[in-house]
Design a protein around this nucleic acid. Structure first.
Lengths: 131, 131
DNA sequence: GATGGTCCTTCCAGTATTGGGAAGGTCAAG
DNA sequence: CTTGACCTTCCCAATACTGGAAGGACCATC
């Protein structure tokens, strides 16, 4: 099948498939007589794997690791779990930061009238001198 | 003062100050005889404003808006509040996504032994066929 | 005045992950 | 044979910087 069919069947856009090939996440696809990339069911499985891992927020580098772990029948489940746990920690870190920012913003917006008058605690806070 | 001092006093790296100037977030700084950028207290206030807004996760484009709103004494507090509220919504969107991803990952990692055996629900889920 | 060290300058390139679009080749149908 | 859909490569845009190279400026010291 051509790249367009592979894209439709996997949910990974054709452009992104080419990009993944260019950075070495995917092996170069074999080409047809006319130079078109040709994919089979095995490639589709890989693309779907990648699509799912990316949709879970794994970075492409992590996906690369996960693909290697997937194809390694000898690897321990602990190796895979470690990748997932690191990702969870990363998510927790980001969520904590966002939560803190969010509460600051909510506090400020609650104190801001949001009417025609110019007085605004949000701007005042951003513009404050000192700490 | 030179860019280095401005960087130290504001918390915005010198390189980033130059970058902000290059994209038009900051007005081009006047230059000394030797071609060095020269900053004063007013510039410092602006840099600190930017630093705080960025640390609250506002995109550079939003910061640009906020700077304009800051310098506009006629603007209504509603305009500022709108920027902040949109940002809160964006944070909420991202947090919801992360939360959902997180719960999937936690679920999978709990079911993964994390030992020497290769059997691993995390990989199995990524590699599943169908839905 | 020469030297050294620290600061500054510009420019280029890279990070991560695509999306958009141009210019042109391939293929299947009518 | 033509049309249209699909494919190819290549370059540029976006976000928000960060690093480094090559070279100029400035200040203190020998």
């Amino acid at each position: 099948m051509n790249i367009g069919q592979a894209a439709n069947a996997s949910g990974v856009p054709a452009k992104t498939i080419r990009y993944y090939e260019s950075i070495g996440l995917l092996r170069p696809a074999p080409r047809s007589g006319g130079g078109y990339r040709v994919y089979d069911e095995t490639d589709l499985s890989v693309l779907r794997f990648i699509q799912r891992a990316r949709s879970m927020g794994f970075a492409v580098k992590d996906v690369s690791n996960l693909l290697k772990l997937w194809s390694d029948r000898e690897r321990s489940s602990a190796d895979v779990k470690a990748v997932a746990m690191r990702h969870i920690e990363e998510i927790d870190r980001k969520m904590a930061e966002m939560k803190s920012i969010r509460s600051t913003l909510v506090h400020l917006t609650h104190r801001c009238h949001g009417d025609d008058r110019p007085d605004c605690p949000i701007i005042d806070d951003l513009a404050r001198n000192g700490s």
